[in-house]
Every structure is written in structure tokens, then in C-alpha cells.
Simulated assay, not measured.
Amino acid sequence: MPPLHSSQRVAVLADAQNLYHSAHSLFSRNVDYDAVLEQAVYERELVRAIAYVIRAHSPDEERFFEALSDIGYETKSKDLKTFADGTKKADWDVGLSLDAITLAQHVDAIVLCTGDGDFTRLCWHLRHEGVRVEVMSFRPSTSEDLIDAADSFVDLAGDEYLL
């Protein structure tokens, strides 16, 4: 996937929860976030890379968050909420969307690393604003509407994106 031009300014927004669950349910493996970031930027100017994470207070999560920072991602975290009936909820849909809309004024392309179809409308909006939208995720767990709404799609199902 060559960029439109090497001087493009790009932002990478990674829905870590979505990628984690997809990689584990499809392949029982972890995502190589370094390889994802390298492919997402692809010889362009990285303006910002943000990984949206959920704090579940599991033993290895701090190490994971630090590893993301070492790779070059800024991490934004939310606590996992448990409701009285035992259900759990945590998502970054609104936060990621607001960041994308804000960053759109400062970049030529936004790479959404998620397969969540809730971001389809965001893709259409960003493209209407003149921003190139690229989606990177696992094809079997990616919304067809999201793929259709993006300018390009990269399937992360290859070994080069998994650990």
C-alpha cells in the first residue's frame, strides 16, 4: 500500500481492545504493535500515534502499556466498568472519534486500527473533510461497512503482524 506521497502527515489511532480480542479469538496470538505502526506510517511523517487501552488491573497490563509507549504510541486508558448485574463495559468509541476529528485538521491521513463497524460514520465524515482514511484490522472480524467506508484496508492476519 504505497502512500499518496511521502510528505503526507499521518495519525495512527489503535483500538487496542478490538485488536487484542480479534487476534486472540482468530489466532490465539498477540498483535505486533511495532509492525502495525511501521506499516501504518509507511515512509510518511507520523504526527501522532495513540493506542486506546482498557485497564482491567491484570498482572501484565502495565508492561504492555510501557511497551506501547516504547514503540511510539501515546496510551490513553479507561478503567473497565463492572455493573451491578455483572456485565462489564469499556470502550473508546467516542474518545477515539473525537481525537480523529480534532487531528483531521493537522494531518493528511488517519489510520484506524480497528475492525469495529461503529467507526463507519467517522470514516465517511473524515473523508468528506478531505482526510484519507485507512483501516488496518483482521478481515474476518472487520465490518464490511467499515472496509467500504475507508480509502484503503490492510488485513493484519499475516504473520508479520502477529507475535
Rank of each mutant, 00 (worst) to 15 (best):
I50V: 09
S137M: 12
A14D: 00
A157S: 10
I71K: 00
S7Q: 14
A14F: 02
L162E: 01
D99P: 09
K81H: 03
N18Y: 01
A157C: 14
L112E: 07
A104L: 07
Q8Y: 04
S22A: 04
T102H: 00
R127I: 06
R139F: 05
I110H: 10
L13P: 00
A90N: 08
S152G: 07
M136I: 08
D99M: 10
Y73H: 01
W92A: 14
A150V: 10
L96E: 08
A23D: 02
A157I: 14
R48H: 11
Y33K: 03
V135G: 11
R29I: 11
L13C: 06
H128T: 07
K89H: 02
L80R: 04
L37T: 07
S25L: 15
C123Y: 09
Q39N: 09
Y161C: 04
L103M: 07
R48D: 04
Q17H: 14
R121V: 15
I110N: 10
I50G: 11
L156C: 13
E129Y: 05
L122C: 13
S152H: 03
E144I: 08
K89V: 05
M136R: 00
K88R: 15
E62C: 13
Q39R: 11
E74C: 15
R9L: 11
H106S: 15
A90G: 11
D155Q: 03
G130S: 10
A49S: 10
Y33W: 13
D148R: 11
Q105M: 15
P3L: 06
A84K: 13
A84Y: 08
L98G: 03
I110G: 12
A35D: 14
E38W: 04
E61R: 02
K78I: 10
E74F: 11
A90V: 06
S25H: 12
A84N: 01
G86S: 08
R44G: 15
H125T: 15
S143W: 04
G86V: 13
E45L: 15
L156R: 04
V94P: 03
R127V: 02
E66R: 14
Y73A: 05
D151R: 04
L19T: 01
G86Y: 12
G117A: 06
D79K: 13
V53E: 02
K76S: 11
Y33S: 10
E134W: 07
A49M: 12
A149L: 14
Y73V: 03
D118I: 08
K76Q: 14
A150F: 09
P2C: 15
M1A: 07
A84S: 02
D118L: 10
S7Y: 01
Y161D: 01
S97Q: 12
H5S: 14
D159M: 10
V47C: 06
F83I: 08
E134G: 14
I110V: 13
L19K: 02
E61N: 00
T114D: 01
L146T: 03
D145R: 01
D93V: 12
R48C: 08
L156V: 04
L68A: 05
D34C: 11
L19H: 06
G130A: 04
V135R: 07
R55A: 07
T75M: 13
V10S: 13
K88H: 12
R63H: 06
A35Y: 06
L96F: 07
N18A: 13
A67N: 14
V36E: 02
T102K: 11
R29L: 03
M136N: 08
E62D: 12
V53I: 05
P59L: 05
Y42H: 13
S143K: 02
F138S: 02
A51G: 12
L19S: 02
H21C: 09
L146Q: 02
